[in-house]
Write a protein that binds this DNA or RNA. Structure first.
Length: 678
DNA sequence: TAACTGGGCGCC
DNA sequence: AGGGCGCCCAGTTA
């Protein structure tokens, strides 16, 4: 068993950042390889024999321990040591995955985990390095302007912005050598505290990392064994190569659509900004328009003081400062006319345009150009949430606006490349089904199992609609869905999701817009109400909730999700059912990804089929396939049979947790924003 | 300057 | 006591 860790010139390995230091620890101790970095272009200078040596090292060992090992595998790939297909993924022992499994609610960085499980404080290594790096960076800014210090705006590091100093660990040794070679400054002493340690500070820090990563693995695995969670760990491990592949393949945007939309919306933003400024002038106010959707003093002063609109706090606000969010602006606009009304409407339009432009600019920092498309490779983090959801960043592709306000959406820019097509598969009503079948709630089980039968036709929302508006439902039946699409039916949906998200009585009633709705829903679904109560009690007793056990993995144990406690030691009643549902849904999705990936790999071997997974959206999977034929014209000469296989595989994951999980199929030949149901 | 906080907004 | 995220901006604090 050995552990390894790479230090890099930044996290953006697909944009030119590279490892310059590899540390590894095994039974015989801790060793390392260190390479000089050219300060002008930030590229490490790596001897061929070191690459060969690393190849041997990686291939010889049986188990490999890493902290967020997927990143370190990508490091090795970026310098030609290994690659996706040949790396022995299932031999990995990852202290990030293990740490989340053992305690999903605690900080997972190495320093915190080593403190928690080994009682050792390694923060002094990092603190010393941070201090020295910052001094070195200051020194370079003053005396060596040609040296390429990490900062926002460098094309090779689009993620720069936070903790930039971490990308400049190489700088200490580079500066020390530079001084030794040139002796150009007598007073060379950028850091008064550590002037003579520039050769070794990075090394001390990095070597401690690989050493303690190995120790930490031992502690975590002991805990996993004690709690009998080995099978759950091994199942989770399967996700790493899938995410690695997903990040590599990424998601494409149409470059011509991007240019067109950018131009149109820039004009729109300018126009609306001018309207706002002119209206402000008529109030004797020189409005300084805030960027994007943000709010500044100038805007507040105009709206609340000079126009005299009555401010109200926002729904989710932590303070009682008057809100200027979309919801608040909508409310204000209903109570005003004339210039204030025109102002509010222009401000909303300006924000809409600015949001679109802002999203595209963020993508622009990250994308790679490939002919007529741009390709994004986001970072997907399987331990990025306190539930089992993955988080996504650089850029985040899990919050792409679906529909424009009457206009275009960012989603419409995401288009398949030439001779490609998108498909998406979505677990239908997954989060509503989980408590319904698990409780179980016989009425809802019946409804979900018979989507063709009246009066509810498989719709959870219609059942609640009936409970809250019995007269209307008696009169119109399932037509209520269309008749009250924007009003009662929408409010019912909002309320249902609010409850899934943990809303308590007051919030639920106000979301449903019906007094007493919360209690009526509880009365209608007594078993779900009881499940919620029981799971809150259990969570307070044991500190966590478990997802539904999967009979194909471990019929006894699900994935434990820690519930955070307030200062008084109680768990918020909003949390337990939500974690249970959200976590179980994502367990389903993780297993679905494993099965989908298995099919895709099989097809690749069978006939070279090049289909891949672009993205996962918690209960949904997006696929990028080669265009074969239009399934609407000739289903037999299309990818439809493959998609049906994938659908079958995903649905089978529901069986293993006792929840029927019908999965819908959408075909996107043109753009992700438009889907054709199959 | 850099780090932090809150507001705003998008998704499931 | 409405769950889980990431990103940008403005304004304050160290």
């Amino acid at each position: 068993m050995f552990s390894w860790d790479c230090e890099t010139t930044g996290v953006d390995l697909r944009h030119g950042c590279k490892p310059y230091y590899v540390t590894y620890t095994d039974e015989s101790g801790t060793k390392f390889l260190e390479w000089g970095v050219n300060p002008i272009d930030r590229q490490p200078i790596i001897p061929d024999e070191d690459i060969d040596f690393l190849k041997g090292l990686i291939n010889n060992e049986v188990t490999r321990v890493g902290h967020n090992a997927r990143f370190d595998v990508l490091c090795l790939e970026s310098i030609g040591v290994t690659n996706l297909e040949s790396f022995p993924w299932l031999s990995l022992r990852d202290t990030l995955l293990a740490g989340h499994l053992v305690n999903s609610g605690s900080p997972l960085n190495l320093t915190d985990q080593v403190m928690l499980y080994l009682g050792v404080d390694i923060s002094p290594y990092e603190d010393k390095l941070e201090k020295a790096c910052k001094s070195a960076r200051d020194y370079c800014r003053r005396h060596l302007p040609k040296w390429r210090i990490a900062k926002k705006g460098l094309p090779e590091m689009p993620s720069a912005g936070e903790e930039d100093w971490k990308a400049d660990g190489w700088l200490l040794r580079a500066l020390a050598y530079h001084h030794w070679e040139t002796q150009e400054r007598e007073d060379f002493n950028p850091d008064k505290e550590y002037p003579h340690e520039y050769y070794t500070l990075l090394s001390d820090y990095a070597n401690a990392d690989s050493y303690y990563t190995l120790q930490l693995w031992g502690a975590l695995w002991g805990e996993i064994q004690r709690r009998g969670l080995e099978a759950v760990y091994y199942e989770r491990l399967k996700i790493l190569p899938i995410l690695y592949r997903m990040e590599r393949d990424g998601l494409t945007l149409s470059s011509s659509e991007v240019s067109r939309v950018l131009e149109e919306f820039s004009e729109e933003e300018d126009r609306c900004t001018k309207v706002c400024i002119n209206i402000a002038k008529s109030y004797n106010h020189d409005l300084v328009m805030p960027a994007g959707s943000s709010v500044n003093q100038s805007l507040k002063e105009l709206v609340f003081d000079k126009m005299g609109l009555e401010g109200r706090p926002g729904k989710k606000a932590k303070t009682d400062v008057p809100s200027l969010d979309k919801d608040a602006l909508d409310r204000y606009s209903r109570s005003c006319t004339g210039k204030p009304l025109m102002f509010v409407n222009s401000l909303l339009k300006k924000r809409h345009a600015a949001k679109m432009i802002g999203d595209i600019s963020t993508y622009n920092r990250f994308w790679h150009e490939e002919g007529c498309v741009h390709r994004l490779h986001p970072n997907i983090n399987p331990t990025g949430t306190t539930t089992l959801r993955c988080s996504c960043r650089n850029p985040n592709l899990q919050n792409i606006k679906k529909k424009g306000d009457g206009g275009e959406s960012v989603k419409s820019l995401f288009r398949p490349g030439p001779d490609r097509e998108f498909w998406s598969l979505d677990g239908k009503n997954l989060e509503l089904r989980i408590p319904s079948f698990f409780a179980p709630e016989p009425e809802l089980v019946e409804v979900f199992n018979h989507p063709d039968q009246g009066p509810y036709y498989g719709s959870y929302h219609l059942v609640v609609f009936d409970a809250l508006y019995p007269e209307l439902f008696h009169k119109h039946g399932k037509n209520c869905k269309d008749l009250y699409e924007a009003t009662y039916y929408q409010w019912v949906k909002n309320g249902n999701f609010a409850i899934i998200y943990g809303a308590q009585e007051e919030t639920a009633d106000s979301t449903y817009r019906v007094r007493g709705a919360y209690q009526r829903v509880r009365d209608r679904f007594p078993n779900i109400a009881r499940l919620s109560d029981q799971i809150i009690t259990l969570a307070n007793k044991q500190g966590y909730v478990s997802t539904i056990p999967d009979i194909e993995v471990d019929p006894e144990r699900g994935y434990p999700l820690m519930c955070s406690r307030s200062d008084y030691g109680r768990i918020s009643p909003t949390i337990p059912l939500n974690y249970f549902v959200q976590g179980t849904a994502c367990w389903w999705k993780l297993r679905a990804l494993v099965k989908v990936d298995e099919l895709l790999r099989q097809w690749r071997e069978d006939d070279g089929f090049s289909g891949f997974i672009n993205l996962e959206l918690h209960d949904e999977v997006i696929l990028d396939f080669p265009k074969v034929g239009d399934p609407r014209v000739d289903p037999d000469n299309s990818n439809l049979w493959r998609i049906k296989k994938i659908q079958e595989a995903m649905e089978s994951c529901g069986t293993a947790i006792g929840i029927p999980t019908p999965t819908s199929i959408e075909y996107h030949p043109d753009t992700w924003a438009v889907g054709i149901n199959f």
